[in-house]
């Protein structure tokens, strides 16, 4: 069970003077249960890439296999793919349209042809998962706060019970509290429900604290692919494409330079704190 991209290319406006190559020869394998961070600059092709994974965009050349079947075959059931691979767009709250929160979340499962009872059950549990209070179920989605709206929109995708969840910049435009809520929710979904998660972001901190694998994109190609520790150890290369390692990594390096024997591969605060403490203890002795 996996997603395989085989020499995927995508060109916008092919055949005109405006043509631009958004994806160039991407080959990837995404296994079940992975938690992947997809990082890159604006225009590096992240959003184009994830829209291929549920068949919203068709590749100019190359193939995409979901569980072994080519999703662009003419007899492939694209609807079932969109049920399995849930895609949450950037600013998903802009897609809300129903008169109340609950019916909006019901939209996805209803389209998938679930029966009425199942629709309501999945919608209910999705709203529970994202932590929306019961007394908000029947208010207009337009009356909610920004963070709440976004959680409702994510619930709208979760209600289809996807096996793979892709989130395109889910924390954009949220305050730190809202950001932590969303990231905590994503972490919980990955851990408890075993969903494969692909988190598209350009915030290193968001990604470093959560994911098990990072894919860095640059100009439509894959620039790096590995664990956060591997990737951030090569921060010089990241800087050449205008990205950077998390602040923590830089602090650890600065400490090392000052003579404190700390682990410079730490990428999160949770990793850094014990390393600094033990280094301090060692120095006192």
């Amino acid at each position: 069970m996996s997603i395989i991209l085989d020499h995927l290319c995508h060109t916008y406006e092919a055949g005109t003077t405006l043509k631009s190559e958004a994806l160039k020869d991407i080959s990837l394998k995404i296994d079940d249960g992975e938690f992947i961070g997809l990082i890159g600059h604006t225009g590096s092709g992240k959003s184009t890439l994830v829209q291929h994974l549920n068949g919203l965009l068709k590749p100019t050349s190359g193939n995409i296999y979901y569980n072994g079947a080519d999703i662009n075959d003419s007899d492939y059931d694209i609807k079932s793919l969109r049920k399995e691979v849930g895609l949450v767009f950037q600013y998903p709250e802009h897609q809300l349209f129903e008169t109340d929160v609950f019916s909006d979340v019901c939209f996805g499962p209803k389209n998938m042809g679930f029966d009425k009872k199942e629709v309501e059950l999945t919608a209910y549990s999705a709203l529970e998962t994202v932590g929306i209070d019961h007394d908000l179920f029947y208010v207009s989605p337009f009356d909610l706060s920004g963070g709440q709206k976004r959680r409702v929109a994510i619930a709208g995708v979760l209600a289809m019970k996807p096996k793979v969840l892709i989130l395109d910049e889910p924390t954009a435009g949220l305050d730190p509290a809202g950001r932590d809520e969303i990231l905590g929710l994503v972490r919980k979904l990955h851990k408890e429900n075993g969903i494969t998660v692909i988190l598209v972001s350009h915030s290193m901190e968001d990604v470093a604290n959560n994911v098990g694998r990072i894919i860095v994109m640059e100009r439509g190609g894959i620039f790096m692919d590995g664990t956060p520790t591997d990737i951030f150890a090569r921060s010089d290369e990241l800087e050449t494409i205008g990205l950077a390692a998390p602040e923590v990594t830089y602090i650890m390096r600065a400490l090392k330079k000052k003579g404190l024997d700390v682990n410079t591969f730490a990428t999160t605060i949770d990793e850094a704190v014990p390393s600094i403490l033990s280094a301090l203890k060692a120095r006192k002795c």
Binding site: L56, K79, R82, F89, H94, Q95, N111, G156
Partner: peptide
């Protein structure tokens, strides 16, 4: 275009 895609991702036809 964006909203259309977002709703298609939720199974809209």
């Amino acid at each position: 275009d964006k909203i259309m895609k977002a709703q298609m991702a939720r199974g809209a036809d």
